[in-house]
Design a protein around this nucleic acid. Structure first.
Lengths: 237, 237
DNA sequence: CGCTATTTTGACCACGTTCAACCGCTGTGG
DNA sequence: CCACAGCGGTTGAACGTGGTCAAAATAGCG
């Protein structure tokens, strides 16, 4: 069930400073609040489906969301994991296409929705927002192109090592000398993020564990030797 | 050698109507011309290298350009082939990163260069340009994400079939019942575009030829049975 | 406590890579 | 003029990564 929570200013949002509206004057921020609705999604709830019309912009206030595409055979590939401050749906909004991926909460999350009309109105009169969006889309594009390169030329082992390092940056919390990844994904979800099968991913997990690179306890993964992981990624296999 | 050709209005550019400046008033178009330089590049000339600073925006006036990334081992992967009207360098410009790929002319080409400062100035005051850029980046992003999905889950055969169909849309010219692809790439370049090795690509070429799907003469490829290629792409292998 | 979903391990197989040889063509120097 | 090196393209054979299938072990949950 989706619960609507009471409205409040974007300024109170955790990562407002890094967000696309950070340079917006007070007046426009109030205008924003009019077009905005905030919803709560429980773990495993779908926020939107691939193919849905793009009616506006989504912005994560708290929690974590996975964004994935499905292929004809029903297999899923996770494009990225989003956390607070991240926005979703821009690309479909601007290219006038249906939404190109499905968004699903992997933790209980609060997600704001910003109506297309209101958003475009603000965009038109505030070039700072446009520039921030251009910046964000550009970074996403560069990452996506890098990912394609990876999938074409790197082994599953290297791709998994890279994922662990990316996760360390995004979700790592220091804990008795090691960095614990504060994100809970099933083996299947990990596999879908790396672009491989569950079986291969499990074998890589135990290989890395045996080699002392990581520590694994259920769905908790800790990075013990980030440098050695980095070596892996640069040296061939 | 790079020859600078004389300046003329963007309005005279072949695909001006589809370009990002199509809605710009006359005054701004004249302003554009001040910041713009037009250069000629012969086949195999490099327009810019991966890692170069992003000093502005490139726009192809005529010819064809390949955009590729190199991995540490020196292998190249072609991200896309660009033709007249396409712009390059946006993503690096907006994300304040060095250029993420190398651009090389695969035909004799004319390429305009638009200085960063002037471009941003026009962008700031013309939301139509910003919206068109957002649209373009969004489409590129969606394509790149789709490509990553392909590389992860589809066979080389299917990816090559998809490439042929994409090329048919972009470069196809009708010719005695079939569509000839008006683009000349080496087997290696084709392989780099599909994300496989030369050997595999050659085998696929001869397989498709034997099955009557395409006709191959040196570097000329003609599509005989686009429907059967399409079938390939949707049905598993 | 029993049922189901998730995780793990093993055996096998296939696609695609790697390595090697060969062909045809072009350009170069003796 | 021919020899030969160099390059792009093609084909064959062997190998390996990683996918598939099957089954067992474990965890999660009513």
């Amino acid at each position: 069930m989706i619960c609507q929570s009471k409205s409040r200013s974007c300024k109170l949002c955790g990562s407002f400073e890094q967000g696309i509206f950070s340079e917006l004057p007070e007046k426009e921020l109030k205008q924003l609040a009019v077009y905005r609705t905030a919803n709560h999604y429980n773990r495993k709830q779908i926020i939107f489906y691939e193919g849905n019309p793009a009616l506006g912009l989504f912005c994560i206030r708290s929690g974590k969301v996975k964004l994935y595409k499905s292929n004809p055979e029903g297999k899923q590939q996770i494009l990225r994991i989003l956390k607070e401050g991240d926005t979703i749906g821009q690309s479909s909004l601007f290219s006038n296409q249906p939404l190109q991926a499905t968004a699903e909460a992997i933790e209980d999350s609060e997600v704001c929705f910003l109506d297309k009309t209101g958003f475009l109105l603000i965009l038109k009169n505030n070039s700072s927002v446009a520039l921030k969006l251009l910046r964000g889309l550009s970074q996403e594009l560069i990452q996506a192109e890098g990912k394609a390169l990876d999938l074409a030329y790197k082994s599953a082992r290297v791709r998994f090592a890279e994922l662990l390092l990316t996760f360390k940056e995004a979700f790592g919390v220091s804990e008795k000398g090691s960095q614990r990844l504060n994100i809970s994904l099933s083996r299947e979800e990990l596999a879908q993020t790396v672009g491989t099968t569950v079986e291969t991913l499990v074998r890589l997990l135990s290989e890395f564990r045996k080699d002392g690179l990581i520590e694994v306890d259920k769905r908790n993964i800790s990075i013990l030797e980030p440098e050695k992981l980095l070596e892996l990624t640069s040296s061939g296999y």
